[in-house]
Amino acid sequence: MNINLPAIRAIYKFEMARWGRTFLQSIVSPVIATSLYFVVFGAAIGSRITEIDGISYGAFIVPGLIMLTLLTQSVANASFGIYFPRFTGTIYELLSAPISPFEIVVGYVGAAATKSILLGLVILGTAWFFVPLEIAHPWWMVGFLVLTAVTFSLLGFVIGLWADGFEQLQLVPLLIITPLTFLGGTFYSIDILPPVWQTVSLFNPVVYLVSGFRWSFFEIADVGVGISVAMTLFFLCVCLVAVWWIFKTGYRLKS
């Protein structure tokens, strides 16, 4: 199979370099934000909350906080990465280069996923300063981390291709991703919700991500691990189909 490896490398390197240029915004601010979550939810509020399934509240929220960062950063990085060339007009190079849609996606989504995985690991490291942690299934943890980062980077890529302005670029993360993450069991177990809201929560895809990820840490989960993996893969497929359709039709890319 003929793959334009130098092109994938060029895009990946370009995107990673852009990340490096905005180091403060890219790394320091998520770390500070996470530390604040630990101070507010872990120390201040957490001290008044009893253990959940035998896990201290401070430790319980760690997987959720990592997921929160992973989802928002994946979407933000990937959407901005592809939207910016569209905004400045440099997209002409991507469209006129001997590069396939698959290679473009691998370059941009690969870079966005790498950034958010690294950030997720930085958040995990930060969490160790606040709470003692043991990871029951480290490989599953890494698996969920990678799968989620890739899936939401793909979603971000779709948003970056769809958006027709910076407002639209912010719209989906602000109005959909963040609420779904906060309502997806990041800071609580959905078992503590009234039955009706437990059912409603099952329509929230983030519940499956957080639940599966939390299981890899503490072997406790709101839904079965198999269902979590299946739902994540399903969402990955939906994003892949959307990207495939955009490149096939040239939607918002070619006139």
């Binding site: 490896l5 092109a7 280069a97 001997p98």
Partner: peptide
């Protein structure tokens, strides 16, 4: 250099 890479 980026452009060179894009063209393989």
């Amino acid at each position: 250099s980026f452009s060179r890479g894009l063209w393989g």
